[in-house]
């Protein structure tokens, strides 16, 4: 019994860490959809660019800044900044010229941008994997410091130790902080107000003097910033990236956004958590191979019974 509980806690920690990363990326999909009703398929690639920027910035500063937490903070800020620039440029170059054109055009452009960004990074950075571990040279050991949570015996009577590492704590805490900050931005600031207004009715918002183009640009910037935070966590955890890494994680995060209710920010975070947990626990108690089947079955079920997702608002028919 004790062992069963310990195993559950161990897997719970795995699930929450995974879910945090999915959730942060999912917000990027959901915010863009909420405002312009378009699925930004290149968002996974924005995340991928974030992972590369993380590696590049660590490479630049790790020699000069010896205090590791400070280095992380600086890399985080720099990569958020530059990833946001990519997000802004993406919208400016590929989506704004097509605003008002049929949805299908925007969708095809998004897929096109996704392919473009993958190949752009491959040409610029090469096809080989970029590892972060070698660059940090063990300076990140502080993240591997573990705290014992439960010390028990497994079925065969051997010790089974459940631990949580600084890295896992960092991922969870950073996600919560970022979530609070962003929901405050949406609900309290002028920018958030314009975003909510654009979401409700873009032409009306424009008539009332809101700069719609700027608001949409800022939405892409915010989505990219969150993806950059997620990419830092991902790199700390997985320690290697390549130009293809955004694809799968993008699909998962997009699923999370749909599951939570596309257009809803808490929904995206919840969707991310659910997908992280379902994947982990299905793998933990049933079959690792079919974890994706479990995730997508859940998605199908939710969409049958709640077509707008868990926290999504039903679309008001504007006749």
């Amino acid at each position: 019994m004790e062992f069963q509980f310990a195993y559950f806690v161990d897997q719970l920690i795995n699930g929450v860490t995974l879910g945090s990363i999915y959730g942060l990326i999912a917000i990027g999909y959901t915010m863009v959809y909420g405002i312009i009703g378009m699925i930004n398929f290149a968002h996974g690639e924005i995340f991928m660019i974030g992972t590369f920027l993380t590696v590049i910035f660590f490479m630049l500063i790790i020699g000069t800044i010896t205090f590791f937490p400070l280095a992380v903070l600086i890399v985080l800020l720099m990569s958020v900044l530059l990833t946001s620039v990519y997000g802004w440029t993406l919208e400016r170059v590929a989506y704004r010229p097509l605003r008002g054109s049929p949805r299908l055009a925007a969708l095809i452009t998004a897929i096109g941008m996704s392919i473009f960004l993958q190949n752009y990074v491959q040409l610029l950075q090469g096809a080989r994997n970029k590892p972060l571990t070698g660059i940090l040279e063990g300076k990140d050991d502080i993240l591997r410091v573990k705290y014992d949570l439960i010390n028990t015996l497994n079925a065969a009577g051997q010790p089974y130790l459940v631990t949580i590492s600084n890295l896992q704590l960092l991922i969870i805490i950073l996600t919560v902080v970022v979530m609070v900050v962003f929901s405050q931005i949406i609900s309290r600031t002028a920018l958030g107000r314009s975003q909510r207004a654009c979401e409700q009715d873009r032409s009306m918002a424009a008539l009332l003097g809101i700069n719609v183009d700027k608001t949409i640009s800022m939405t892409f910037v915010m989505g990219a910033a969150l993806a950059a935070v997620a990419s830092l966590m991902f790199m700390m955890h997985v320690s290697t990236t390549d130009f293809f890494v955004g694809f799968l994680i993008g699909v998962k995060a997009f699923t999370a956004a749909v599951l939570g209710g596309i257009g809803s920010m808490p929904g995206a975070m919840l969707g991310g958590m659910i997908i992280g947990l379902v994947e982990t626990f299905f793998g933990a108690y049933f079959n690792q191979e079919y974890k994706d089947v479990a995730t997508f079955t859940l998605l199908v079920l939710v969409l049958i019974f709640r077509p707008t997702g868990i926290l999504g608002k039903p679309d008001i028919e504007k006749v």
Binding site: N14, H237, V238, L248, T280, G283, A284, Q288
Partner: peptide, 22 residues
Amino acid sequence: EYEYSIKNRQFGPIIAKVKADK
């Protein structure tokens, strides 16, 4: 015996199982 897909980079769930298998 556990299987994983080529796109997988996060092995937490498998590792917890391996931990239990010792």
